[in-house]
Simulated assay, not measured.
Amino acid sequence: MDSQHQSYTEDSFEIGEYPLVEEIETILSGQDIAARQPVGKITASGKWKLSDPAAEDGSEVVRGFTRFAVDASGADAQASIIKSARLDQSAIVLTGTDHTIATMKADLEGTPLFLAPVLDQSGA
C-alpha cells in the first residue's frame, strides 16, 4: 500500500448519536497500522503511533483510533484519527498492542471517546 493511501471497509464502528470527530495526524515512520487500532501521541514530536502501554514517550496513553489502515512503514504518513465518538468495543483491533478494553477505557476516561458493547436490540 502507498504510504499516503488509506483503505476503508464500510461497516459500523461508531454507535449511537455521539458526535464523531476525526482529525488528520502524522503517523510516525516505521508503523503499519490497521483500521480501528488504538493510537497515542508522542510527546516530543507530536507524531502518532500504535499505542503501547509499556511505552514511555506519551504514546502509552490511548488518545484516538485509526479510521483507516495506514502504511507508514517507509516514511511518515497522514492518517485520519477518531478523537470523539462512541465506538463498538468489539470492533477495535488489538493486534500488536498489549492494551485491553479495560486499559483503553481507563486511558479514555474524561475524554470524548467512549467504548461500549453493542446491545442486542432484537428483543430476543
Rank of each mutant, 00 (worst) to 15 (best):
M1L: 00
M1D: 00
D2A: 09
S3W: 08
S3M: 00
S3C: 12
Q4A: 12
H5Q: 12
Q6E: 13
T9Q: 14
T9P: 03
E10I: 11
D11G: 14
D11H: 13
F13Q: 08
F13D: 11
E14V: 14
G16F: 12
E17D: 15
Y18V: 06
P19Y: 03
P19F: 01
P19E: 13
L20M: 14
V21H: 12
V21E: 11
E22K: 15
E23A: 15
E23V: 15
I24A: 15
I24N: 15
E25Q: 14
E25A: 14
I27Y: 02
I27S: 00
L28Q: 13
L28C: 04
L28G: 02
D32K: 11
D32V: 06
I33K: 06
I33P: 01
A35V: 04
A35G: 13
P38K: 03
P38T: 05
V39P: 09
I42M: 04
A44I: 03
A44L: 06
S45L: 05
S45F: 01
G46A: 09
G46L: 07
G46W: 08
K47W: 03
K49W: 01
K49F: 00
S51R: 01
D52M: 10
D52S: 01
A54S: 14
A54C: 04
A55R: 05
A55H: 05
E56I: 05
D57A: 05
D57Q: 09
D57S: 04
G58C: 02
V61W: 10
V62Y: 02
V62K: 08
R63K: 15
G64Q: 01
G64K: 04
F65K: 13
T66F: 04
F68I: 07
A69C: 08
A72C: 03
A72P: 02
G74H: 00
G74P: 00
A75M: 09
D76N: 12
A77V: 04
Q78T: 06
Q78A: 15
A79D: 02
S80W: 15
I81S: 07
I82K: 10
I82N: 10
K83E: 02
K83W: 02
K83N: 05
S84A: 14
A85L: 04
L87R: 09
Q89D: 07
S90L: 01
S90E: 10
A91M: 15
I92M: 07
I92H: 03
I92N: 09
V93Q: 14
V93E: 15
T95H: 09
G96I: 04
G96P: 03
D98K: 13
D98Y: 09
D98F: 10
D98L: 12
T100L: 10
I101P: 06
I101D: 08
A102M: 04
A102D: 14
M104A: 02
K105W: 04
A106H: 07
A106Q: 13
A106L: 11
D107P: 05
D107W: 07
L108A: 05
L108K: 01
E109W: 01
E109T: 07
G110A: 02
G110T: 01
G110W: 06
T111F: 09
P112E: 11
L113D: 07
F114I: 11
F114T: 11
F114C: 07
L115Y: 04
L115E: 05
L115G: 06
L115D: 01
A116M: 14
V118G: 03
V118M: 12
L119C: 03
D120V: 06
D120L: 10
D120K: 09
Q121K: 15
Q121R: 13
S122Q: 12
S122W: 13
G123L: 12
G123N: 06
A124I: 10
